[in-house]
Amino acid sequence: MELSQLKNIWESANSQLDEEFRMSKEEFRVSIRKRSNTVISKVKRIMKFKIIMGTICIFLLLFVGINLDWREVGDEFILGVPLSNPELLILYGFLAVLVLLLSLYNLFSYRKIIAYQRSSFDLKKSLSEIIAVIKNIIQLGIITDVIGMTCIAFFLLYIQLYKYQTIQSDYPMLIILLGTLITPFFVYRLTKFLQFRKYGNYLQALETYRDELEENPPKM
């Protein structure tokens, strides 16, 4: 077959194809109402859920915190350990700020996805944009886990080590400091591994496409 024939064959084949697959207006309407199943749409739905849950959490924590009398010694138990009201106030306040910051970051990333989905860049620019969006999602996942797990580690150590004594500069304090310093390192490595396992291949594929469109592709 000669290359010159290709266009004729293509045209002839596709004129038939158009008739075969042509959709009605009603089928169009039904189609656009369905849920998108692209990777980015799924991530967007998860983010939306996280933002809603984060907002509810902030209000709950603020509500509980406001209703605490910090001068009184509390009798609330976390992991079987009583925490004083000032300790609870610090815990709830800190968690509220943390959830707020992470929710804002989530919202920022969510808006980036919406902006991307509404755009109509050329293919190379579009690939660069989605690569940036996915990298942002990976970064968000890592930051959320590192900060969250470090806080949990800190409070678990604090609760267990100061079960029967007040906080002071001593051996348990050293363990808390070491635990709080070591946790982010391990969580970072683990989350990075998990995030790249989840999105790594997809990201790599998109980068391959983008590089394919570069006149001077980066050397590997």
């Binding site: 077959m1 024939q5 290709l6 064959i9 293509w10 002839s12 084949a13 038939q16 194809l17």
Partner: peptide, 18 residues
């Protein structure tokens, strides 16, 4: 590939080859 794309002008084999 649907049979429908086998046009009068070209046979199915050519289209499939493309």
């Amino acid at each position: 590939l649907p049979e429908a794309i086998q046009s009068n002008e070209f046979d199915g084999a050519e289209i499939k080859l493309l």
